[in-house]
């Protein structure tokens, strides 16, 4: 254990840098982000095209023209992977942020006001956690939005499935953050500075915003990072089942939809998208683990 009395930020950084897997994961995720985010650029640099169907070029092995070969419709597989990564990461991170927003609001209100409201909200949260979520999400993904009065033009918009899946996945993913935020808020609201503020006549809204929320930042960051991995997994499962992101938009999940039928002809098509999901999710989990160790002063450290 080092006994440096540095600025808190460098102390956190020092502890974070002890977690080698978290550092490696951070770099991996930056790489993934660059590769996926810059997909159009890389495709034009490598002269790859993930859209054009060429049935004479199906299941080509890797070559200089197609670095990872082609898929069942003769499309370049690397280009599809890059595009799919952009969509999967974008949807995953959007949904995770959205889920963390819901979770923070629910947890904050529940923990701050306590009492009956708290009991009710936490019952509800526990109820959600214990349900068989995937089947219910499948129903949500399958419902006809026009019956809810959503304009048809909006439903049929090209990117509609992206928004839809983000919302659906977020509806399932907020519980972790909510429970964590609630637990911390329960402790924070009894602190002296919060009481002092209340005695001075501050409104609940102000206390929550100025005194409690900033103190929750570390926990929220950790919980969001950890749940991003889960949310990307959930999105990929729904897309794999054909209920998430709809083709022709590629995502790592829906690239695997056909892979099962093609597994005898082209097992390599099933390998890459899944491996990329796996690497991304494990990197988010390690990163979250490292952040928790670094940000939580209660964690007991031992080196070795």
């Amino acid at each position: 254990m080092t006994t440096r009395k540095d600025h808190p930020t460098s102390l956190v950084w020092h502890r974070f840098s002890q977690h080698r897997l978290a550092i490696a994961s951070g770099f991996l995720l930056i790489w993934m982000g660059l590769l996926a985010g810059g997909a159009p650029l890389w495709k034009s640099l490598l002269v790859l095209d993930g859209q054009t169907v060429d049935l004479f070029m199906r299941f080509q092995p890797a070559s200089s023209l197609h670095p990872l070969g082609t898929d069942e419709l003769g499309r370049d597989f690397l280009a599809r992977l890059l595009d799919g990564g952009r969509v999967s990461l974008l949807v995953g991170i959007t949904a995770a942020l959205f889920a963390s927003l819901i979770g923070t609001v629910v947890g904050l209100i529940s923990g701050y006001f306590g009492g009956r409201l708290d009991a009710l909200m936490m019952r509800f949260t526990d109820g959600i956690i214990s349900l068989p979520l995937l089947p219910l999400l499948i129903v949500l993904a399958a419902i006809d939005l026009s019956k809810l009065g959503v304009p048809v033009a909006l439903i049929n918009a090209e990117n509609a499935s992206l928004f839809r899946i983000s919302i659906i996945v977020a509806l399932a993913g907020w519980t972790t953050v909510a429970r964590l935020v609630r637990a911390e808020t329960l402790a924070l609201r009894e602190r002296d500075y919060v009481r002092a503020s209340r005695a001075q006549g501050a409104t609940s809204w102000r206390i929550m915003r100025v005194h409690i929320l900033p103190n929750l930042a570390a926990s929220i960051i950790v919980a969001t990072t950890l749940s991003t991995g889960n949310i990307i997994l959930l999105e990929s499962v729904l897309s794999f089942l054909g209920l998430g992101i709809q083709p022709p938009i590629a995502s790592w999940g829906n690239l695997l939809t056909n892979a099962q039928e093609l597994i005898w002809e082209a097992p390599q098509l099933a390998f890459y998208p899944g491996a990329l999901i796996f690497l991304t999710v494990i990197a988010f989990n390690f990163l979250g683990d490292g952040l928790r160790d670094a940000l939580d002063p209660k964690t007991i450290h031992s080196q070795g």
Partner: peptide, 15 residues
């Protein structure tokens, strides 16, 4: 353990 919680279940099945 981390591999276990991070692996997409359908991909594991395909493998």
């Amino acid at each position: 353990v981390f591999a276990g919680i991070s692996v997409p279940p359908f991909w594991l099945a395909l493998l």
